[in-house]
Design a protein around this nucleic acid. Structure first.
Length: 254
DNA sequence: TCCCAGGCTCTCT
DNA sequence: AGAGAGCATGGG
């Protein structure tokens, strides 16, 4: 669920339930086995230094679920999405991915990102990393034409330039308060509140960010017309993800 | 075929 | 401040 709930776009699953994807400039295979999750083709060192943080393993989701479950709707939604975690992805990749996601559908978003990585990422064996801001910032719209991003091409170029020239310093945004960090991100063309909040939540560790897409707006209108319960606001990120997953599965009427 | 997609910018009130 | 058109492309 974590890898397939719309927060990351480079994971896919085979017929044996083995997921594979590229993240943090590494190729990982991962699968569920009974009550365990098995990471393959990696090392203990990478698990400790990279994957533990990527999968947000230090956070106690059970405690969060317990706290928000005094609300019946959140109890159902979190139970339905039990196991979902918020990934800590690479900021620049996340920013670009959600710029690409605007007015777009998930299969096509994935295709665009793979074409972008294959053409401008760094190759190791048969996988490609997400391109750096430095590489993308030197490109023109013509260079990116065969990626077929449509009107988003100029947004990606603006994001790459802003990050490469440190007009927007992504590393600083971990420490900034959420409103200032969002304001920084929105200096980039094509980045509005939704794309900014996805970047804040899925890469910059602003766990209270609450991206409002069409699904969430519709679900919130039905489920919480007066807003989230007060004790759930600080867990907005995961609450949002539970509601997103729940409503996308066709269960809007809880 | 036609509708629409994890929105945003630009323009017009 | 708020509403609405237009946007590139292609998946279903």
């Amino acid at each position: 669920m974590t890898l397939d709930c719309g927060q990351a776009f480079r994971w896919s699953v085979d017929e044996n339930g083995v997921w594979s994807g590229v993240a943090k400039n590494r190729f990982l295979k991962i699968k569920k086995e009974n009550d365990s999750v098995v990471l393959m083709n990696t090392t203990l060192e990478d698990f400790n230094n990279i994957w533990s943080d990527y999968f947000d393993l230090d956070r106690d989701y059970g405690k969060i679920v317990n706290e928000i479950s005094d609300n019946e709707i959140l109890k159902k939604a979190s139970s339905f999405g039990s196991g979902i975690r918020i990934l800590n992805q690479e900021p620049f990749e996340t920013l670009c991915s959600f710029i690409i996601s605007q007015n777009n559908n998930i299969p096509r978003i994935k295709g665009i990102i793979e074409r972008l990585c294959k053409k401008y990422g760094e190759q190791t064996d048969d996988y490609y990393s997400f391109p750096t801001a430095q590489v993308l910032s030197r490109l023109t719209e013509e260079d990116l034409a065969d990626i077929r991003m449509g009107f988003r091409t100029k947004y990606i170029l603006d994001a790459a330039k802003a990050v490469a020239e440190k007009k927007v310093c992504l590393e600083d945004l971990f420490k900034l308060d959420i409103d200032s960090a969002r304001e920084e991100l929105m200096k980039i063309k094509g980045v509005g509140p939704k794309v900014a909040d996805c970047t804040l939540l899925f890469s910059l560790k602003h766990f209270e960010a609450f991206p409002k897409d069409v699904w969430i707006k519709r679900a919130m209108g039905t489920l919480f017309p007066d807003g989230l319960p007060e004790n759930a606001v600080k867990y907005g990120g995961i609450v949002q993800q539970y509601i997103f997953y729940y409503s996308r599965s066709g269960n809007l009427d809880i």
